[in-house]
Design a protein around this nucleic acid. Structure first.
Length: 469
RNA sequence: GUCCCCAUCGUCUAGAGGUCCAGGACACCACUCUUUCAAGGUGGAGACACGGGUUCGAUUCCCGUUGGGGACGCCA
């Protein structure tokens, strides 16, 4: 397939959340898969609810996820002239009409017809009435003449064949009484003008797709292919929304997730490729297809994201991780870690990163490498130094200065020898030492810690702990 | 209320009539490795919502029930 054009078209009424991110990802993947273009359009036709901050958050979120769009960002609000022109064309062709109902009339109609169980809400009163009957004090809207009978079919790339009886489509508003276009009109005109071939979005737009295709047809335009993907639900099965558990994509970044992990997680939510779980973005581009997208809504599962993130953390280069940790550490402590600290972090990263699920956790676990002496001890660490611990470290201290090469292998040999002479297990030496060096009872391998810390710092920290007894 | 969609382990899913007493992953539980905590390795428990059909044979096809979800704006 050539010439594929997809688009992500969020409305800037809030942050970019996980559901929107997945829609963006699917559109992006589909375009990349087919060597096509992925466009970004901001649907800000609701001037009252759109905000600059939301636009910024959406752009930032996409950038963080590394979902790059082709071409300039299109702002729907700048295209009103074309929308109005399309409405007028429909009016002139007799495919739309002016309706002079008041909001009160409509509200009453809605209630009455809802109560009667009728399908459409608007009674189409003005579809046949002569404009000369128009009340002088009501500014009209322009409504589209939806088909009255028969049925319509959409062959959705995800949902399959979907049929609707035409008698349930309202004559929707194209132009508001203030002359501004509605979403339905704007989407059709913009998708056409932008050459969009595949519309991939949430199922909540499924019924809109019918209205859209009527308008495409009335305007004499080709209808794009539709793919309506299921929504993401919260762990409780309820729809994820801004007021119900949905977090902005920035929140996931702040919680310490890697963009590649989030992408992999989102990809597997509703889409599968056999038993494959760890799927790189490159591989995803090769494999992604709409036919493998499921139709049932999926629940958001943090454990799974954590697990994927842990995997990508293990895969990530140490210098990248060290920079991320240093940044967070600096932000938390207000200071700026020096070059030495960054180098130490990087050397310690192999042992650190296999123990963390998120960058936040990684930062916590790395903190002992950056902490200044004397270290604060956790209660469990203090307990390790009580009793035999400290005196033993005092006996160990002089031997540390005599070790010839300060590397993990030599250190292990030295410590095992020391433990033997002390007549205790290695653990009886290693645990107090761990407490002295890390302030904690758990850490990366102790020989690695010593090697990363270096001889001087190690001896100093041991001295702090041994001297305290 | 009306219309539309969906339904496999707790969760994400594989499965396109016999290959399934249903596979993988996360989570969970053991064991193992071990200087701690992890990671790794091995093993375990755990699902085809229910009822009818169709068929020699249904997780897979059809219908219904139940249960979820979505849509019914001069919002997008």
């Amino acid at each position: 397939m050539t010439g594929v054009v997809t688009r992500f078209a969020p409305s800037p009424t809030g942050f970019l959340h996980i559901g929107g991110a997945r829609t963006a990802l699917f559109n992006w993947l589909y375009a990349r898969r087919h060597g096509g273009r992925f466009l970004l359009r901001i649907e800000d036709t609701d001037r009252a609810r759109s905000t600059e901050a939301a636009i910024g958050a959406i752009l930032d979120g996409l950038r963080w996820l590394e979902l790059d769009h082709d071409g300039e960002v299109v702002y729907q609000s700048t295209r009103a002239a074309g929308h109005v022109e399309a409405a007028e064309r429909l009016l002139a062709a007799g495919k739309a009409y002016r309706a002079y109902d008041t909001r009160e009339d409509l509200e009453e109609m809605r209630k009455r017809r809802m109560a009667e169980g009728l399908k459409t809400r608007y009674d189409r009163g003005w579809r046949g009435r002569d404009p000369s009957e128009a009340p002088p004090d009501v500014r009209p809207v322009i409504r589209f003449k939806a088909p009255l009978e028969g049925e319509s079919i959409i062959n959705d790339l995800v949902q399959g064949e979907v049929r609707f009886d035409n008698d349930q489509f309202d004559d929707i508003v194209l132009l508001r009484s203030d002359g501004t276009p509605t979403y339905t009109l704007a989407v059709v005109v913009d998708d056409h003008d932008m050459g969009v071939t595949h519309v991939i979005r949430g199922v909540d737009h499924l019924t809109n797709a019918f209205q859209h295709s009527f308008i495409f047809g009335a305007l004499g335009w080709d209808v794009p292919a539709f793919a309506h993907v299921p929504l993401i639900h919260g762990p409780d099965g309820a729809r994820l929304s801004k007021r119900h558990g949905a977090l902005s994509i920035a929140a996931y970044r702040d919680m310490g997730y890697l963009p590649e992990a989030v992408r992999n997680y989102l990809l597997r939510l509703g889409w599968a490729h056999g038993d494959d779980e760890i799927i790189s973005t490159g591989q995803a581009i090769e494999w992604f297809g709409l036919d493998a997208v499921g139709r049932a809504p999926a629940r958001f599962d943090v454990d799974r994201l954590d697990s994927l993130n842990a995997h990508y953390l293990k895969d990530a280069p140490d210098d990248r991780l060290a920079r991320m940790v240093a940044e967070r550490f600096a932000a938390a402590s207000g200071g700026q870690p020096g070059g030495d600290a960054l180098a130490r972090l990087e050397r310690g990263m192999p042992g650190l990163k296999i123990r963390a699920k998120t960058i936040v956790e990684l930062t916590e676990k790395a903190s002992f490498y950056l902490a200044s002496r004397p270290l604060d001890l956790t209660p469990k660490a203090a307990k390790l130094l009580a009793g035999d611990g400290a005196p033993r470290l005092a006996r160990l201290a002089p031997e540390l200065g005599a070790i010839e090469s300060w590397d993990a292998g030599a250190l292990e040999a030295a410590l095992r020898g020391f433990a033997e002479r002390e007549g205790v297990t290695l653990g009886a030496v290693a645990q107090p030492l761990r407490a002295a060096l890390t302030g904690s009872h758990e850490s990366p391998g102790i020989f690695e810690v010593m090697a990363v810390l270096g001889r001087d710092e190690t001896i100093a920290r041991v001295g702090d702990a041994a001297g305290g007894s």
